[in-house]
Amino acid sequence: MGNTATDAAPGRRDRKKRQTRDALVAAALRLVDERGRDHVTVEEISEAADVSPRTFFNYFATKDDALLGGPLPDGPSIHDRLLAVPAGVPLLNALFEAMQPDIEQIQAERDVWLLRLRVIKSNPSLLPLLVARGECAEEETVAAVAARTGIAPDSLFPQLVATTAGAALRTSMMRWATDDNRDLLDLVREAFVILGSGLTEPAPTHEEVTR
């Protein structure tokens, strides 16, 4: 049998790291929301999170990384998750299933994400980094779709699938940010159903205005 105290130590360390990381993100977002990005320093963020600037840089390379949340915690990549979905599952359904853990994590951190979206809207200088991160995520999705379908990653199909999936997630998040009555997962699921329909025009949901 293993040593229980030793076996438990990595779990405690991981929780402590996550708590520190979350505290830094929360402090960065709160301060920038109050003052604006250009009026907040790494030192002030660190002080608000009750850690040293050195500790800050153990988690984030820059202030902007803290605002956008940095990399997701370790776990299976979208590539590994997509390949793990049974081969008989249609591609869009499989892709939604592979994305689900990330969507659920965002949903669980709703307050943080709503604040993050507000900070991004108020500080347009964050947009280039956000776009760059989106491009990296889409490149990973392209590789995953190519591996699952056997289609070359430089072909149009996997690139178009990755781009439309990313757009569906972003559109759903913006809708979610203004609708307290909908879960993000439901919105993304609905968006994927629309994509799966080939963007077939739905029946009108309101009476046509008579001219």
Rank of each mutant, 00 (worst) to 15 (best):
G88R: 08
P90F: 14
N123T: 03
E104I: 08
A87M: 09
A94M: 05
P128K: 08
A108I: 02
D80A: 15
L114V: 06
S77P: 01
A98F: 03
L126T: 10
V112D: 07
A132L: 13
L115V: 09
A84C: 08
D102P: 00
D102N: 11
P71D: 12
F96P: 00
L82H: 09
G88S: 13
I78E: 02
R81H: 02
P76D: 14
D111M: 00
I120H: 01
Q100W: 12
M99A: 09
I103R: 01
V131I: 15
P71Q: 12
P124R: 08
I120N: 05
P90W: 14
V119M: 02
R116V: 03
P90E: 13
A98H: 04
V89I: 11
R81Q: 08
L83W: 03
S122N: 15
L83H: 01
I106R: 00
V89F: 02
N123K: 06
A87H: 14
I103Q: 02
I78T: 09
P101T: 09
S122M: 10
S122A: 15
S77L: 04
G75E: 01
D74P: 05
S77I: 03
A108H: 10
V85Q: 12
L92F: 11
R116Y: 09
E104M: 09
S77E: 00
L130M: 14
E97G: 01
L130A: 13
G88N: 13
S77D: 03
A84G: 11
P76L: 13
D111T: 07
E97C: 06
D102C: 03
V131W: 11
A87Y: 06
D102W: 00
A84H: 03
N93S: 15
Q107R: 04
S77K: 04
I103W: 01
L127P: 01
